[in-house]
């Protein structure tokens, strides 16, 4: 059989079609490699979007657009009246409490929890060791000393060292209250941290203070020698 080629235009169209087939893979590979605001394409909607409200979603029926309704001003949820001022404010008989509120006991677990929560919420400014040298504090101080003056109105006050003699005198209840409601330029954290966790943080802060102001006599005798070796 003699092979003869079809007319040129046909070969040309065929080659072009084959080339065209090679384009989509490149386009897809490029799409996969580049983030883009127009992604999340739904080809089949199935029941992906349902007429219901999920947490923090939008409900256009309310003026503020919130599907989750904030509690009405002046109302108090059950158990949140703050009647136990020891628990909610850290106050006993008009003075700062020195003890944990009823139902909480000092334990290793409590301090561990306090440390974990401290490292999440407090260390940003106060630093892991409590010396007021957290990353946010460092950056804010840098902004304050910019050669061009404080950047965009920054007005930062050096975060307090928790080992400041004044802070070391704070009773447990006062530390709890500061964590809850803030003090001076520090904001309160009652919206971000549970009551029990704020107590755990207050307890941990006192443990941290003790750890940074301890003498060798505070160390149990059986581990003193090991500690001395480690320091050397």
């Amino acid at each position: 059989m003699i092979v003869s080629l079809p007319p040129r235009w046909m070969l040309f169209t065929g080659a072009l079609a084959a080339l065209a087939l090679a384009v989509p893979p490149f386009v897809i590979a490029r799409v996969r490699a580049t983030p883009d605001p127009n992604r999340a394409v739904h080809i089949f909607f199935d029941m992906d979007f349902q007429p219901k409200f999920r947490p923090q979603s939008v409900n256009p029926l309310f003026a503020d657009g919130r599907a989750q309704r904030p509690s009405v001003l002046g109302t108090v949820a059950r158990g949140e009246a703050g009647l136990d001022v020891h628990l909610s404010d850290g106050v006993v008989n008009g003075k700062w409490a020195d003890t944990l509120p009823a139902g909480m006991t000092m334990s290793r677990e409590l301090l561990d929890r306090g440390q974990q929560r401290y490292n999440i919420y407090c260390s940003a400014c106060h630093g892991y060791g409590g010396y007021g040298d957290g990353t946010v504090n460092k950056r804010a101080m840098e902004l304050m000393t910019n050669s061009a003056g404080p950047a965009n109105g920054t007005s930062w006050v050096q975060a307090k060292s928790l080992h400041d003699p004044l802070v070391r005198e704070h009773p447990l209840g006062m530390l709890f209250n500061i964590a809850s409601n803030g003090i001076r330029t520090m904001a309160g954290y009652s919206a971000q941290i549970d009551t029990a966790d704020r107590w755990a943080i207050a307890a941990y802060v006192q443990a941290l203070q003790l750890s940074q102001n301890a003498s060798i006599q505070d160390v149990p005798p059986e581990i003193r020698d090991n500690l001395k070796k480690e320091v050397k």
Binding site: P55, Q56, N152, T154, A187, Y189, A191
Partner: peptide, 24 residues
């Protein structure tokens, strides 16, 4: 604690940004 990981309240931003670059 919850199924949903909350997007923070504006207050959380303002904890720091009351003092850091408030005019930005």
């Amino acid at each position: 604690k919850a199924a949903h990981a909350s997007v923070p309240a504006t207050q959380t931003c303002m904890n720091c940004h009351t003092h850091i670059r408030p005019e930005s």
